[in-house]
């Protein structure tokens, strides 16, 4: 059984069909990349996995999405718990305008953790996991908005790591960063892969090729091809995938 399984997943914005019967299995503790041109549905797909699409007016979803074998679109799904287990890193670094400490501990506090000792320990461990502890341990009270873009994005990952989710969804996490910062975040993803299952959406094909073990190619709401990254980039089976990765399209 795969950690994430979708079966015939379709999504409509009003009358517009943004996802067309997507069936896809994502294995645990690997990095899976979703690539495709802008507007192809890859981010929409990602947002189905933690039900962030629920926040948009007029969205309708059919098909099945199961995480750990359980359908997350069942009526009795606990959304708060689902989102704790399936964390999301966004395109732009988006720390709250709070201190570094309050950012990291936000999730834990929201989920009811009040024990000072546990909070302090989690704070240190989460910042260590993203290599910010040494830089920031004396600046835990500074406002997170004063950090650099790369530090902010790391902080956002630390904020998730504190909740120890099973899955990290990353929606173009490096598109607002410069190449050096991107490299560092990618290195971090490689480390985190041991602890979390990572699904990353990117329009940067080199990035997909560098960091992921499996790749899916989306086009106009359809999943065209899915398979091992090395195979997709060396011997795509579908002409459309080949056109895209060789730069003839998109």
């Amino acid at each position: 059984m795969s950690l994430i399984e979708t079966e015939g997943l379709s999504l409509f914005y009003g009358n517009f069909q943004a996802l067309k019967t997507i069936s896809l299995n994502i294995e645990s503790c690997r990095i899976t990349a979703l690539i495709g041109p802008s507007g192809c549905g890859k981010s929409t797909f990602l947002r189905c996995l933690n039900r962030m699409n629920d926040l948009i007016d007029g969205v309708r979803i059919t098909g099945r999405v199961a995480i750990g074998g359980r359908d997350i679109y069942r009526r009795e799904t606990d959304l708060l718990d689902l989102r704790r287990r399936v964390g999301m890193v966004f395109q732009r670094p988006n720390p709250f305008p709070l201190s570094v400490e309050d950012n990291v501990l936000f999730g834990l506090k929201v989920h009811g953790q009040t024990d000072r000792k546990i909070l302090e320990e989690k704070l240190q461990r989460s910042l260590e996991a993203v290599h910010l502890w040494d830089e920031l341990k004396d600046r835990l009270k500074t406002n997170a908005l004063e950090l650099t873009g790369e530090q902010q994005q790391r902080l956002c990952i630390a904020r998730l790591a504190a909740l120890e989710p099973e899955i990290l969804l990353m929606d173009e996490p490096c598109s607002a960063l410069d190449p050096i910062a991107t490299e560092k975040i990618e290195a971090l993803m490689f480390e985190l892969r041991k602890r979390f299952t990572i699904v990353i959406v990117t329009h940067n094909m080199q990035q997909a090729a560098r960091v992921s073990e499996e790749t899916g190619y989306f086009l106009l709401g359809e999943l065209i091809e899915f398979g091992e990254t090395s195979r997709i980039f060396s011997a795509p089976r579908d002409q459309r995938t080949e056109d895209y990765i060789t730069g003839r399209y998109g």
């Binding site: 989102r83 988006n94 709250f96 929201v110 989920h111 909740l163």
Partner: peptide, 13 residues
């Protein structure tokens, strides 16, 4: 808007 998204995506009510 992003503050709202992040907060909810962390599982807050």
């Amino acid at each position: 808007r992003s503050y709202r998204e992040v907060s909810l995506s962390l599982g807050s009510t």
